[in-house]
Design a protein around this nucleic acid. Structure first.
Lengths: 142, 142
DNA sequence: CAGAATCCCTTCAGATACTG
DNA sequence: CAGTATCTGAAGGGATTCTG
């Protein structure tokens, strides 16, 4: 090991913590793992992407439900998890019919570099083993 | 809010695909989700970090097992998944006692920008809701 | 030593039905 | 409209045991 603290350093810091130490936050206690676990759940990324993509911000429950084709309970769970993680802000208006709007927070938008890096990684490696290609790397996006 | 196609663009591209369209690779069919799902599994990030951190590369099964405190079957599963995803290279030497070495591939090392961005995000937002802080943002790492 | 196989348990996620 | 409740099925993950 001679160059084991340059590129892997960020990973090291991002993964710091003690496994099975007594915490019960996510599944291991690692911050990175927590985030991955959260985003790794069903429809998590599509939902978040949909919310983030909406610059206007306001998204109704049924809008997300029909647009993303997600079961209502699952959508509720994801939304709650996101709200709990501070990625989504929930605003309920006390009127009839009831209206609840979900909006991606600044925290969620700031995740963009991560997705950008991820996109760059996928674009660079093609990701053949995972089955799906990124989409259109032929288009001059960035 | 009228900047709905700048920062969220990468997320859009990273999430492209059709939900429940007919694919059955990971769980949704989104490349990003696949990666998150893979890394979101138990001990996935610690294992990968341990492998990436070892610049020399060669890690024995029992080394990982004892160092990470992971059940053998789980470790085997993660290692297989990583190998299948091209993140880890498995080399088995036909000798007695049998020796198998696992090494992080270039593809895995190139994930560093993602982790770096993630670390930066955590460092920026503190990640209070997810329970665990990044580690030492007091130290001048980057 | 490395890991495959087995059993058991927990969690997740979808469908459905019902309420404010 | 926006959920909550309940149920069922399916993976995930751990411990243990056994084999090459």
């Amino acid at each position: 090991m001679s160059d084991a603290d340059t590129d892997a350093d960020a990973v090291e810091r991002a993964v710091e913590g003690c496994p099975a130490g007594g915490n019960d936050e996510g599944r291991d206690g690692h911050p990175a793992t927590d985030l991955f676990t959260l985003l790794g759940r069903a429809h998590a990324v599509p939902i978040l992407a949909h919310l983030v993509h909406g610059g206007s911000g306001a998204w109704r429950f049924s809008e997300l439900e029909s647009a993303l084709d997600v079961a209502p309970n699952t959508l509720t769970t994801r939304l709650q998890e996101f709200a709990e993680a501070g990625l989504v802000e929930r605003r309920s208006y006390d009127e009839i019919p009831p209206r609840v709007e979900y909006q991606a927070t600044d925290r969620a938008r700031d995740l963009d570099p991560v997705f950008r890096a991820l996109h760059d990684w996928m674009d660079d490696h093609g990701e053949p083993a995972l089955g799906v290609v990124v989409g259109d790397e032929s288009a001059s996006d960035d």
